[in-house]
């Protein structure tokens, strides 16, 4: 424990002792960031729920990859832009807000035409982009009574079961494989938005 405490303190100390130059740099960064960062509605319009889900899966994998000690949380270079477990963790919440924000529209679209929605979103191949979970949430939230009569109900029931089963059995290796495909996230407006939100929302501010 002593070693951990010491290392943690030393890390903090280094940040403290070399304060001047670093503080200047960090002060200028948010200004540049703010001027180019999209708003929540713009981000939501730009990224689909599947893209948001892919980013969420990526952040989850990075959180899971973080070292067993805070001092070893050096950052994952999974997709070419290092993010620490802590950074990824703070970005998951504003990302969840974006996903939740799209959920109603998605559920409405599914309710209106379950078959078409399933084809469009790729229910059958959802495991390939680790989307079975989020699509399962869309389907779960749908109201059967609002759906077109007849076959839709049977289809809905089957969708629910299949998506739930696939999502439940998604392995860590599959999550990792999906995460590796998300290099786009590094330079995306989504990342910039999440970083800004994470900073603003942090209760410790």
């Amino acid at each position: 424990m002593k070693l951990i405490v010491l290392i943690a303190a030393l890390v903090g100390m280094v940040g403290c002792s070399s304060s001047d130059k670093k503080v200047d740099a960090s002060k200028s960064a948010p200004v540049a960031l703010m001027s180019h960062t999209l708003s929540a509605s713009e981000v939501s319009a730009k990224y689909s729920i599947l893209e948001l889900n892919s980013a969420a899966n990526l952040l989850k994998v990075i959180v899971d990859q973080a070292g067993s000690k805070p001092s070893t949380d050096k950052g994952s270079d999974l997709i070419g832009c290092p993010l620490t477990g802590k950074q990824a963790g703070t970005m998951t919440m504003p990302l969840k807000a974006l996903i939740d924000g799209q959920m109603k529209n998605e559920t409405d679209a599914y309710t209106a035409d379950p078959k078409n929605y399933a084809n469009e979103k790729g229910f059958e191949t959802c495991f390939s982009n680790c989307a079975c979970g989020v699509l399962g949430d869309v389907v779960d939230a749908a109201s059967e009574s609002a759906m077109p009569a007849g076959a839709a109900t049977r289809l809905h029931s089957r969708n629910k079961q299949r998506l739930s089963l696939k999502a439940k059995h998604q392995t860590a290796a599959e999550s990792l494989a999906c995460a590796r495909k998300q290099a786009w996230f590094c330079t995306s407006d989504l990342k910039a938005y999440l970083e800004k939100e994470a900073k603003e929302n942090a209760a410790e501010n």
Partner: peptide, 22 residues
């Protein structure tokens, strides 16, 4: 737990345990 992003209970449990260890 990030349980909203992970439908696999074993994986959710493992994540929590790992973070608890830290």
């Amino acid at each position: 737990s990030l349980d909203w992003q992970d439908k696999n209970p074993a994986s959710v449990y493992a994540r929590v345990k790992k973070q608890m260890a830290v």
